[in-house]
């Protein structure tokens, strides 16, 4: 299914994500990495000091879609597959892989690259590569 090319909305959205990362760094000295923030609220509890702020950040994240609806009068556009097995496996891999690799698209892809971290650049190139291959296999080998 095709989606429209939206360079301006995507650029502006990226700028908002960047501003959020700066607010978190300036106020709390923390990286806006969502997998890290999620992992801090889940057992086994290792980083108790980061727990309250992680919960508050996640509440903000959860309020974004309702606020969007209030302001624009329409729910955000999205198309999600109904394939429970596929999405369940995808979720397991995303959760497991992001904690194993110490970060995801936000922690490595935005914050890490912005800090010039070689580990984050390597991680981002790796997950981009496997994601491209996965979608190729999913859509053009297994069938579309």
């Amino acid at each position: 299914m095709e989606t429209d090319f939206t360079p301006f909305a995507s650029l502006l959205g990226g700028v908002l994500i960047g501003l959020s990362a700066i607010v978190l760094m300036a106020a709390h000295g923390r990286i806006a990495g969502i997998s890290g923030i999620l992992s801090r609220i889940l057992p086994p509890m290792v980083d108790k000091a980061g727990l309250p702020q992680s919960i508050i950040f996640l509440i903000g994240l959860l309020l974004a879609a309702p606020l969007w609806f209030l302001l624009t009068g329409a729910a955000p556009v999205q198309v999600v597959s109904n394939n429970a097995l596929l999405l369940g496996i995808a979720g397991l891999l995303v959760g497991f892989g992001s904690v194993m690799g110490n970060g995801c698209t936000s922690g490595h892809g935005v914050c890490g690259i912005s800090r010039g971290s070689a580990r984050s650049i390597a991680a981002t190139l790796t997950f981009m590569a496997t994601a491209f291959v996965t979608v190729f296999v999913l859509r053009h080998v297994v069938g579309g």
Binding site: I34, G97, T105, T134
Partner: peptide, 22 residues
């Protein structure tokens, strides 16, 4: 870890932030 994450991201189209937001 990053390679595993990428496979999941490709399969579902979601990474952690967007999944929580959605």
């Amino acid at each position: 870890g990053a390679a595993t994450f990428g496979v999941g991201w490709g399969l579902g189209g979601f990474c952690p932030g967007p999944a929580v937001t959605a």
